[in-house]
Design a protein around this nucleic acid. Structure first.
Length: 593
RNA sequence: GAUCACGUAGCUCAGUCGGAUAGAGCAACUGCCUUCUAAGCAGUCGGCCACAGGUUCGAAUCCUGUCGUGAUCACCA
């Protein structure tokens, strides 16, 4: 059974744009949750496209459409009004009552009521996080993870088959830097009192520090520029040799590499666990990069790629050379990326969309990658999407390891720690550490998801530390409030059939239900725009509405049993609805706060 | 220099692929706890939607230009 919005759309299409696809996509029919319903009605139909047909007759055509709707949907529609550019539909209370009954029938199952599972065959692969294995996850990863995880969860809600995929960049020069530091500055001794990934991070930063020192010395000594000084750097040579050793699997390179990676992965898993993020699939570039190398060599034979004078392999993109293989035969970022994609094609065979959640600094990288796939006539060309988001800036600049100084933190673990301390001090009643952490995690996640991925985040600890107003805590608090009411009254004892909802239901109760009916539109918009922030905003509006209702109306302590039943039912719907969406957003659910 | 984003209230952000009177939160100031969780609710204050043109019945939204901020510009990953 189609829902009302879809039915209205059908009538509209039949009447005005049966054959015009473009206009069909522009039809704008929405529940009115933002303006006075007694004036603007329950559903607003934007009739601009009618202007397209005949400007002069817009009123006539509007009335025609209104009459048709009233006739066809007389069960629910009792009135329509033409106002400005809108055809406003006024609904009977019965419509909302039926919706409430539907919720009751499904035992308050949000998924069943709003989305009936379909499309299970459609497979979506979502790659997110993609860390390097040389340092802990930082705030850039945090944004990435939260966007990726939320989008993945939403695809899941609709009923698609979703694969959350993590690609770990576990090979390359950056790892070798940690390896050298481990050998040279730490005598191959692991510090056990530090979380694994942080320890490896320390190795990496130690290397960078020493490296910069050396470069400075050389450039001063010989009076040359820094980038030229690299040629004479001893540490740089050591790293390059380490990479060659690693590729040849010589010496202790591999064993130390394995040891370091193990530490890092252990550290990652703790952070992921805290964030409550799980992956269905983990890929390692060390295992896929050879596939890419072979692919490029084959392309060279097919004359899709070319050999440069210095024997490096390149690809022409917009008349510019893009290097695909170094002249010494070792592979690059793009090489690995191709390899990983080939691996995925082999493993999953068919998928509808592969979404790369990667920062916007790599827009060009993905353009090149997709072009390479297209030019090689691989059929998946249309099934690749780069979900790019803006950077997380710290002190005005993009977060990069070289910006880290003492007393500055950019790691997820540190942020959680700081937030925990803050919540602990701000909180009125004493709470267990577990609850404190769940509150701070909710706050952090909400604060990051809240912002449109297109916009950059200038990270400021004071923004995250907010616990009033539009925050994760507000959502958690709303949930806990309603939960405590329902806990005091066992819903199962209520006999629904005795309640005459039609007489009891009032404006404010209807407006809550109407808000929930908008959910489908919201989800559609999120999928269309790849923007999870839409969901946080929506959940916030719902929370505000229910808090307002809570404060103005008594729910448990009223004499009229039937009225109480109705309000409890609405509470139960909202409770499950919040639960459902908090799960999607990954905000911890607390029964008490 | 080129390319791509973004510029909305003092601050942090919404704004439905052009439509009804530009919306929230924070901060500041008022009210509201002997009654279901006051981490809340109700209200006041605050806007030349960066600037200038253009497109049309109609622009915060589309186009062009200018300014500002950031990212990228290829053998780092």
């Amino acid at each position: 059974m189609k829902d009302l919005i879809e039915q209205l759309k059908d009538i509209y299409i039949k009447k005005f744009c049966k054959y015009n696809k473009e206009q069909r996509n522009n039809i704008n029919i929405l529940y009115n949750n933002y303006k006075d319903n007694s004036i603007y009605g329950d559903i607003n139909i934007n009739i601009n496209s009618i202007f397209f047909l005949k400007k002069k007759n817009k009123n006539k055509l509007g009335i025609k459409l209104g009459n048709k709707i009233k006739k066809k949907l007389k069960k629910y529609v009792y009135k329509y009004e033409l106002k400005s550019n809108y055809l406003n539909i006024f609904l009977k209370k019965k419509y909302y009552i039926n919706k409430i009954k539907k919720f009751i029938k499904s035992n308050f199952n949000i998924q069943k009521t709003i989305y009936n599972k379909k499309n299970k065959k459609k497979r979506y692969i979502i790659e997110f996080s993609s860390p390097n294995s040389n340092k802990p996850l930082h705030l850039g990863h945090l944004r990435n993870i939260l966007i990726g995880n939320t989008i993945a969860n939403i695809y899941n809600v609709i009923g698609f088959n979703v694969i959350k995929s993590q690609l770990i960049n576990d090979r390359g020069i950056h790892i070798c830097k940690s390896i050298i530091a481990f050998k040279k500055f730490f005598n191959k001794k692991i510090k056990l009192n530090i979380k694994g990934d942080h320890f490896v991070g320390i190795l990496y930063f130690k290397f960078e520090k020493e490296f910069q020192k050396e470069i400075k010395l050389i450039s001063k000594k010989y009076n040359i520029k820094k980038n030229q000084a690299i040629k004479y750097s001893r540490l740089s040579k050591l790293v390059n040799n380490e990479l060659i050793n690693w590729e040849k699997k010589k010496g202790e390179s591999i064993s130390i590499w394995k040891k370091i990676n193990k530490l890092v992965y252990k550290g990652f898993s703790i952070t992921y666990k805290k964030l409550n993020v799980k992956f269905d699939d983990i890929l390692y570039e060390s295992k896929t990069y050879l596939l890419g190398k072979n692919f490029i060599l084959e392309g060279l034979k097919k004359k899709i790629f070319f050999l440069d004078k210095d024997k490096s392999v390149y690809f022409l993109y917009k008349k510019k050379k893009i290097i695909l293989l170094r002249n010494n035969g070792t592979s690059l970022y793009i090489t690995q990326e191709i390899g990983t994609l080939l691996y995925r094609i082999k493993k999953y065979k068919k998928f509808n969309l592969l979404i790369y959640v990667v920062g916007n600094e790599q827009i060009n990288h993905f353009k090149v990658l997709f072009e390479i796939i297209k030019i090689n006539k691989l059929l998946i060309y249309n099934k690749l999407y780069h979900l790019s988001y803006n950077t997380v800036n710290f002190l005005g600049k993009k977060i990069k390891s070289r910006y880290i100084k003492k007393n500055e933190f950019i790691f997820i673990d540190d942020l959680i720690c700081i937030m925990n301390n803050y919540v602990k001090h701000k909180i009125k009643k004493k709470k267990s550490d577990k609850i404190v952490e769940q509150i701070s995690l909710g706050a952090i996640k909400y604060q990051f998801i809240k912002i449109n991925p297109k916009k950059k985040i200038d990270f400021n600890i004071n923004n995250v530390l907010k616990i009033k107003g539009n925050t994760g805590i507000y959502i958690q608090y709303t949930y806990a409030r309603i939960y405590s009411i329902l806990k005091k009254n066992n819903l199962k004892k209520i006999k629904f059939y005795k309640t005459n909802f039609l007489k009891l239901i009032k404006k404010n109760e209807i407006s809550i239900i109407r808000l929930i009916l908008e959910y489908k539109t919201i989800i559609d918009r999120i999928i269309k725009k790849y923007d999870p922030s839409i969901l946080t905003n929506y959940i916030y509006i719902i929370s505000k509405k229910i808090n307002n209702f809570y404060q103005k109306n008594k729910i448990l302590n009223i004499k009229n049993i039937y009225k109480r039943n109705l309000r409890l039912i609405i509470c139960k719907i909202i409770l499950n609805f919040l639960y459902f969406n908090m799960k999607i957003l990954g905000i911890p659910i607390l029964k008490k706060i």
